[in-house]
Simulated scan of single mutants.
Amino acid sequence: MSVYGVDLAEWYANGRWVALLDFIDGLPSACRLNEAIVNDKEYAAHIASQPKPKGEWAPRVAEFDLNAHLLRDILHAVKALRQTSIAVAGGRPSEETPFPGPRTEIDRALADLDRQWTEDFIGQFGFDATDI
């Protein structure tokens, strides 16, 4: 069987396991393979037994294309209109949480630099990092 000019049967026969795994990892999250994996009872039991992740979920950079970016902007605009409508009607709108974007090492490095600058700045006034 040839997919995108790649003969997966040949890769399997030649033991190209790393190439096969790289190919599988590159498949989009909305594919039949991932559907079969998440509907497998043994895999589901394994995932359910894992500890919950510490951080919040964020989409993968590879799957956050222009369409996802634009849809995220539309979602935020709709949420803002909802809050405005509630406020205009005299209600008190709840705080909306924005839909997350991808998180990268660049974002983490920038956050670390901001944190370091803040610590240095408040240090000038006699405070330390525990005061933040």
Rank of each mutant, 00 (worst) to 15 (best):
I47N: 01
A19S: 12
S49N: 03
T97Q: 13
S94A: 15
A129M: 08
M1C: 11
V88H: 14
R108Y: 06
Q124I: 12
Y4D: 12
C31M: 02
D128V: 13
G123F: 15
N67V: 00
Q124F: 14
L70R: 15
R16D: 00
A89C: 15
A111P: 01
Q50H: 07
V61K: 05
A36T: 04
R82V: 03
I106E: 06
A62G: 03
R92T: 12
I74W: 13
G55S: 02
P98V: 07
E56N: 03
P100R: 01
D65S: 08
V18M: 09
N67H: 03
P53E: 04
T97Y: 05
I47E: 01
F99A: 15
S94Y: 05
E35Q: 08
R16L: 00
A68M: 11
P53L: 11
S94M: 07
I86D: 14
V38A: 07
V88R: 14
L81F: 13
L33P: 03
P28M: 06
G123P: 10
D22T: 14
D65Q: 03
G90I: 07
V78D: 11
L33H: 10
G126W: 08
E95A: 06
S85A: 14
R103L: 13
F23E: 04
G26H: 05
Q83N: 09
L81K: 14
I37E: 06
A87R: 10
E95Q: 10
N34D: 12
I132Y: 03
G91P: 10
H46N: 02
I47K: 07
A129V: 10
A36I: 01
S2Y: 09
V6Q: 02
L33A: 04
A30G: 02
V78H: 15
A77K: 14
D22N: 15
N39W: 01
E42V: 01
V3R: 10
L110Y: 01
E119P: 08
P93W: 08
Q116I: 13
R32I: 03
I24A: 15
G126M: 10
R108F: 05
N67K: 05
A13Y: 04
G26W: 01
V61H: 06
S94F: 11
R108C: 12
I122C: 13
M1N: 13
S94R: 06
S2V: 14
E56G: 04
W11L: 07
A111T: 07
T97F: 06
R108M: 11
F64I: 04
D25G: 12
V6N: 02
P53T: 02
K41A: 14
L75E: 09
R72M: 12
A45N: 11
D131Q: 04
T84Y: 15
L110I: 07
G101V: 05
H46I: 06
I122D: 06
R92H: 04
N67A: 10
V88I: 15
I132G: 09
D22Q: 10
A30W: 00
